[in-house]
C-alpha cells in the first residue's frame, strides 16, 4: 500500500469515523446535560423566533461594535468565505461529497478556486500573526487555537500545492493533502473547529432565552 492508497483508504475512513464519533459524542454529551424549566412569565412566547433571529443577525456585528471589530470581522469573513468556496466550489471536493452522500452540484472554475485559496491562505496567515501579536488573543490562545489553525491551514496549503503540482510528485502532494484533511477530521470534534456546529446551538440558545425576556439580542 502506498501513501496515496493509505490516505484515500484507511486514513480517510478512520478519520471520517473518528469525526462522526467525536461529533456525536460531543453534541450528545452537551445537549443531554440537565436543563431547568423556566417558570417566569414570558414577555414573548415566540422564543424560537429569537433563536432564528440571533443565528442570522449575529453573523455581522451590531452597528455599535462595527468600528472596533471591523478588522477582525472582515478577516474572519474572508477566510471563512474562502474556505466555503474552496470546500464546496472545487470540483474534486464536490466529487468527494458526492462519493459520500450522492449529492453533487456545479463547480467553480479552478483558477478562481486557486485565487481564493491564495487569499484564504493570506488571511489565515494574518489571523495567525494577529493571534500572536494581539494582547487579548495571545492571552486567550491555547494549544487548541494554534493546532486548529494549523489543521485548517494545512489542507488549503497542501491542496494548493497539489493542484499546482508544486514541490513534490502529485500523488505525494495529494496524499499529503488527504492526510491533512484526515488530520482535520480527526481533530475537528475535539477542538474549537466544532464551532461550525456549535455556533447554531449557542446562538440559538441565547436567542431563544433572550427573546423570551425581550432582552437585546
Amino acid at each position: 500500500m502506498d501513501l496515496l492508497q493509505f490516505a484515500r483508504g484507511p486514513a480517510l475512513t478512520w478519520a471520517a469515523t473518528v469525526f462522526m464519533f467525536g461529533i456525536t459524542w460531543r453534541l450528545v454529551g452537551i445537549l443531554l446535560l440537565k436543563r431547568s424549566p423556566d417558570f417566569s412569565e414570558a414577555r414573548n412566547a415566540t422564543s424560537w423566533l429569537g433563536a432564528v433571529k440571533l443565528i442570522i443577525t449575529r453573523s455581522w456585528p451590531r452597528r455599535e461594535f462595527r468600528q472596533r471589530t471591523l478588522f477582525a470581522q472582515s478577516l474572519g469573513y474572508i477566510f471563512h468565505v474562502g474556505l466555503v468556496i474552496i470546500l464546496f466550489g472545487f470540483a474534486p471536493h464536490i466529487l468527494f461529497f458526492k462519493a459520500l452522500t450522492g449529492l453533487g452540484w456545479p463547480n467553480l472554475p479552478s483558477a478562481f478556486i486557486q485565487l481564493t485559496s491564495g487569499i484564504t491562505l493570506a488571511a489565515l496567515i494574518v489571523v495567525l500573526v494577529r493571534r500572536l501579536s494581539h494582547p487579548v488573543l495571545r492571552l486567550l490562545s491555547n494549544f487548541d487555537d494554534y493546532f486548529s489553525w494549523l489543521v485548517t491551514f494545512t489542507p488549503v496549503a497542501t491542496g494548493m500545492l497539489a493542484v499546482a503540482h508544486f514541490g513534490a510528485r502529485y500523488e505525494t502532494l495529494l496524499a499529503i493533502h488527504l492526510l491533512s484533511v484526515a488530520l482535520l477530521l480527526v481533530w475537528f470534534p475535539f477542538g474549537k473547529l466544532m464551532h461550525s456546529a456549535l455556533i447554531f446551538i449557542s446562538r440559538g440558545t441565547t436567542g431563544a432565552l433572550f427573546e423570551r425576556k425581550g432582552a437585546s439580542i
Partner: peptide
Amino acid sequence: DFGAVAATYLESCIHCGMCADA
C-alpha cells in the same frame, strides 16, 4: 451549575477576543 446551556456556551468559545471590545 454545568447544565446544557452553560455547557453549550463553554464549548462554543473560539477565543476570538471580541468580547473585550464590548
